[in-house]
Amino acid sequence: MIKITNLEKIYRTEEVETVALNDLSFQVKEGEFVAVMGPSGCGKSTLLNILGLLDDPDAGSFLFNGVEVAKFNERKRADMRKKNIGFVFQSFNLIDELTVFENVELPLMYAGVKKSERKARVDEVLEKVQIMHRRNHFPQQLSGGQQQRVAVARAVVNKPKLILADEPTGNLDSSNGNEVMQMLTDLNEAGTTIVMVTHSEHDARYSHRIIRMLDGHTVTENILV
C-alpha cells in the first residue's frame, strides 16, 4: 500500500538546516499494523505528516496504492487524504465547538455524504467505540479516554484504507490506553492498515512490525508477527 524510496525532508531556517528524513525507504503492505519508534527528533512525526499527505518530501518517491503522490499539489493531497486516510492524534484534536456526533460527522460532510447516511454511519461507529450515550456532549465534557475514542471514531467513520496514529495513548492512563490500542487492533483485524508512531514499547507490541528510526532513517525493523 505504501512504498517510500530514498525519502528526504530538510527544514531550513536562516541559520540552521535540520535533516528530518534522510534517504528513508520502507514499505507497508495492505492490512499491516506498523509501529514507528525512535527518540524525539528522529523524524517520526515528519514521516507521519508525509504519509498523511499533510507535508511533502524534498526528494524521493512516495507511492500510495501504486500512485506517486510525492509531487501532488495541495488540492490533490486533500482529496486523496479525505478518501483514504484517517488520523488519530496524541492530543485528540477534537473541535471544542462541535458535539461528539458533529465531530465524528465532519469527515463525512467534507466527503459530501448525504445527511441520512451520515447519521447512520456516525451512530454505527459511535456504538462501536461505545460512546453513543455521549453523542450530544461537547469534548470538554468528556474524559481523556472518551475523547480519544471519539477521535478514533472520527478517524474511521469514513472507512479509510489507512489510519495514521501519532502517539494515540500519549495523553491517556494505562487502562484507557489499552482500550484505545485494542480498538486499533480490532480495526486492523477488520482490514484497515495502521501506521502508528509511539514511544511506548507496550503499545508497539500490538503491531505486526516495528520500524526504529534514528536521525531521519531506519536503523532496524522487528517483525513481531
Binding site: 498523511g52 499533510l54 488540492r75 486533500a78 487524504r81 479525505k82 488520523f87 484534536n93 477534537l94 473541535i95 471544542d96 465547538e97 465532519l106 469527515p107 467534507y110 466527503a111 472520527r154 469514513n158
Partner: peptide, 16 residues
Amino acid sequence: LREIAVRKVIGSGRKD
C-alpha cells in the same frame, strides 16, 4: 489554529 488544522486534516478544503 488547531481547529483550522484539524478541519484541514480530516478533509476540509479551503473553500469550506
